[in-house]
Amino acid sequence: MIKNRKIDIKGFVIEGLTLSSALFIIAIIIFMLVVIINGGKSAFSWEFLSAFPKEGMTKGGIFPAIYGTALLVIIMSIAAVPFGVITAIYLTEYAKENSFIARTIRFAVRTLAVIPSIIFGLFGLGFFIKFVGVKMDGLFLGGELKWGQPNILWASLTMALLTLPVVIVSVEEALKTIPRELREASLALGATKWQTIKKVVIPGSMSGIMTGTILAVSRGAGEVAPILFTGAAYYLATLPHALSDQFMVLGYHIYVMTTQSANVDQTLPIQFGTTCVLLLLTFTLNIFAIILRYRIRKKKIN
């Protein structure tokens, strides 16, 4: 009985089925990449990346959208990264493990991560624009309309809320890889808690902070729903030069070009090209983040 190895057909089929599911998903991913890159490469040129849209957006480049996306993620990072890092520091360094407060904050962070992005858009509109913005106008500008309308600042802050959990989770993971012995060594030398955090904990988790920032940027660059009505514009002839300006952004550009443009056929290369740029951008950032994270995890094991 033992000698005659029975061929386990059922097992073979099941294992094959699960493997093919995994491979199918990967195949879809590769297919998407190939189709989009293939469709987009003909549009690629220096002009495409560096010029403004022309002739009713049927020709020309997407420079304002790239510029707007960059500006968006920069302002977003400035807002999200410090807050995310500080929250992560609180959770790992100050809060007592499993205390009610820490658990509540963790729950809030996870909830933030699953709230649909469109809700952030609504919040941005209801809070930043119609509450904070309008109040600011009333207080400083005597009611003149400046901040009480969609602009890049409100869009970036809305996006910052969306990406906050990404930063918190990544940084927390990195902070946890700092050995307790190092903290103890510092404290035993008479360093205060804050000195220990500043000189030992934060420098040791720089790569984690980087990972969190990159992931947040990648997420922020790709999301459209939160900025639909908080600042993204269909077409602008000038680049945004103040925080109270609206801006063009890659994701929104794709959306309007595919669904609202007059001549979809004619703009097809631009659509593919823009999608390709956005995809390559987020993809590269993600690969960076994965490599960084892999290195952090390896460090943890050693």
Partner: peptide, 18 residues
């Protein structure tokens, strides 16, 4: 597979549409 999470939804939407 986790790479798929890095695809912006507007890109997936575009892919679906096209």
């Amino acid at each position: 597979i986790e790479m798929l999470a890095g695809f912006p939804s507007v890109v997936i939407g575009f892919f679906a549409l096209m």
